[in-house]
Design a protein around this nucleic acid. Structure first.
Length: 219
DNA sequence: GCATTAACCACAG
DNA sequence: CTGTGGTTAATGC
């Protein structure tokens, strides 16, 4: 039985928690396993208990990595509540444990418990703000700026460390930053030549964070 | 024109 | 899967 520990679920009464627990199924995913698929019918809200996931959307030209999500968090709120079908896919990038919550049960809890609903809204709003910033970043900056921005996000938001392993290969970094894999390669080696970062395969170490932030701001 | 940016192609580890 | 070199198109002095 899955024990939910989300901010929102803290607001649930024991009775409500029971409703949640009884309509919830826990699943483990290995690296690269698909959690849900774009264009498929969506009937669950998913709570990530542990692990990390990439959200991918197939566009008319190419695929796009929308975001990397780290547990604990909800997954697929927009895609499950916003339409009958998923508008994007979710794929585990490390071993991941997820809890599938029946959509009707979730709706019922939203209706029953305002504090729970409030926390969900807060999460959704934060996500939307983040997407607005990401949009500006993508549209108004050149590739160095976009790449620097994502490196800083990996470091600060995903790993809490200046040293980390990239969760994606070069091609996927390109899909995240909206460029070609060749350009990602070149820019990583160039940043390494400038002693801003150290690169060894997927291992990244940020050597000069000030510089990296300057690059993020200036383009 | 000339420089810069970045994509696409090809090829090699 | 990655890194590099050549080529090319678009954009901005």
């Amino acid at each position: 039985m899955c024990i939910l520990k989300s901010e929102a679920a803290k607001n649930l009464s024991s009775g409500e928690l029971n409703i949640l627990n009884n309509s919830c199924v826990e699943v483990n995913f290995k690296k690269e396993e698909v959690i849900f698929k774009q264009d498929a019918l969506s009937s669950n809200i998913i709570y990530l208990q542990s692990g990390m996931v990439k959200l991918i959307m197939d566009g008319p030209q190419r695929k796009q990595i929308l975001k990397i999500k780290k547990a604990p968090c909800y997954l697929g709120l927009p895609t499950a509540m916003g339409d009958k079908i998923n508008h994007y896919s979710a794929v585990a990038i490390i071993p991941t444990r997820a809890c599938f919550i029946d959509l009707n049960t979730f709706r019922e809890l939203l209706r029953l418990n305002p504090d729970f609903s409030y926390e969900i809204i807060v999460e959704l709003c934060k996500n939307e703000l983040e997407q607005f910033h990401r949009c500006i970043n993508l549209v108004q900056k050149q590739i160095f700026g976009r790449l620097a921005n994502n490196l800083i996000q990996f470091s600060e938001e995903l790993y809490d460390s200046d040293e980390f392993d990239l969760p994606l290969n070069r091609n996927e970094i390109a899909d995240l930053v909206c460029t070609s894999r060749e350009t990602v390669s070149r820019m990583l080696t160039e940043l390494a030549e400038e002693k801003v970062i150290k690169v060894n395969g997927k291992k990244i170490k940020i050597l000069n964070k000030e510089m990296l932030k300057k690059i993020r701001e200036n383009g």
